[in-house]
Simulated scan of single mutants.
Amino acid sequence: MSMFRAKKLDLGCFIKPRTIRDHTKRLVFEKFEPERQALRYIIRNTTLPPRVRAEAQLQLTQMHSYTRGTQIRNRCIMGGQGRGVLRDFKMTRFQFRMEAMAGNIPGIKRASW
């Protein structure tokens, strides 16, 4: 038997290491966002003493990179791919085309005029 138990992730897409990493980044970002906002507010508040603002800036820079919103990447819900993702449908261009042609996306049909 394995020492480690695989944690079941129901992300709705094909699970690859990058997909798991992105999911982890989303969870960490959600957890630490209020703290980051508070630190940013302290840094921008000019009425506070410079020492307090400098300490807040130091704390913010020492936080893990996964706590930043820029680390999160939109991924396809079908295949987990990170490029060419349409935001409205959360699918890559190719997957969107295949699903639309199969008639699986309501309200979408081929253009003809």
Score class of each variant (00 low, 15 high):
V85C: 01
S2D: 14
R97G: 05
M1L: 10
R87Q: 14
G12T: 02
A6C: 05
R83M: 09
R110D: 11
F32D: 01
G84D: 13
F29Q: 04
I20Y: 11
E33G: 00
Q62M: 08
L60S: 06
I42S: 02
F29V: 01
R53T: 02
G84L: 08
R93H: 12
A102M: 07
Y66I: 01
R83H: 15
P106Q: 05
Q37R: 12
Y66R: 01
L60E: 12
Q37H: 09
Q57A: 15
D88S: 08
I108R: 02
Q71E: 15
E30L: 09
A102G: 06
A111D: 10
R73Y: 14
F29N: 08
K109C: 11
K8Q: 11
D22P: 00
L9T: 04
L9D: 03
K16S: 14
S112D: 07
K90H: 14
D88I: 04
F94M: 01
Q81P: 00
K7A: 12
C13P: 01
G79Q: 01
I108S: 06
L48N: 02
L11C: 04
I72M: 08
T47N: 07
A54W: 13
P50M: 11
L11Y: 11
R21N: 13
M98L: 13
T47C: 01
R36W: 04
K16R: 11
G107N: 04
L86V: 11
I43G: 07
Q81N: 09
M1K: 10
T92F: 11
R40F: 04
C13T: 03
I72K: 03
T70D: 13
G103F: 12
A111W: 14
M101S: 12
G103T: 05
T19R: 05
H23D: 14
R53P: 01
C13I: 01
T19N: 08
G80Q: 03
A111Q: 09
N74P: 08
K25G: 07
G107P: 01
P17L: 04
L60N: 06
K109G: 06
R68L: 12
F29T: 00
C76T: 02
T92K: 02
R36H: 02
T47W: 08
G84V: 05
S112P: 00
N45R: 02
P50H: 13
M1V: 11
K16F: 13
T24F: 14
G103K: 06
K31T: 10
C13L: 02
E33Q: 10
E99S: 03
A102H: 13
K31F: 15
R40M: 05
L48W: 03
Q37I: 08
K90G: 04
V28D: 01
M98P: 00
H23R: 05
R36S: 02
K7Y: 15
F89P: 00
R44L: 13
V52D: 12
K7S: 08
N104P: 00
R51W: 11
L86S: 04
L9K: 05
Q81W: 09
E35A: 01
R36A: 02
G107V: 00
A100N: 07
